[in-house]
């Protein structure tokens, strides 16, 4: 399957198979004016199967949320049909305002003005915890 080359834009490569649509949602790619292609279950030598997202426009990507959903993603910046920059994502130390604490007993449920902040507590297992109540964040915590 071939999805047309893009002249200028961003290619998110090496997305864990099955995470592509989740990334499409959380990065709010559906709200963009430019065209976006989500390729699922592409063949990959390294990963077996992978997802790819191609965005035909140089938009600002929230690297924090990207790192939280899938830290294995490679971000390719395309200009004049060439890859001009390739970046690996690192796990952010802190995620502010993107995840919502789901613990009904957390102080954030009653203090509306408090920012929801999650801290990386376990790098190997990619565990983020609410700085107030220490509840673990998961994909459903994304606002």
């Amino acid at each position: 399957m071939i999805v047309g080359q893009i002249k200028e834009g961003i290619v998110l490569d090496h997305i864990k198979a099955g995470r592509g649509m989740k990334l499409y949602d959380v990065l709010k790619l559906g709200e963009l004016d430019c065209s976006v292609a989500v390729i699922v279950n592409a063949e990959s030598e390294k990963m077996g199967k992978k997802d790819i997202i191609k965005i035909s426009g140089l938009i600002d990507i929230d690297f924090n949320i990207l790192g939280f959903v899938d830290p294995g993603v490679t971000v390719n910046i395309i200009k004049d049909s060439k890859v001009v920059k390739r970046e690996k994502i690192a796990l952010p130390e802190k995620i502010t305002g993107l995840l919502k604490c789901k613990n009904p007993r957390c102080i954030t449920t009653v203090e509306q003005e408090l920012q929801h902040v999650f801290k990386l507590c376990d790098e190997d297992n990619k565990v983020y915890r609410c700085i107030y109540c220490e509840t673990k964040a998961d994909l459903e915590s994304i606002e």
Binding site: N103, R105, C106, I107, T109, E111, I131, Y132
Partner: peptide, 10 residues
């Protein structure tokens, strides 16, 4: 003392 978790930290 507070019934909500994290209140003393705040």
């Amino acid at each position: 003392r507070h019934p909500k978790e994290g209140a003393p930290y705040v």
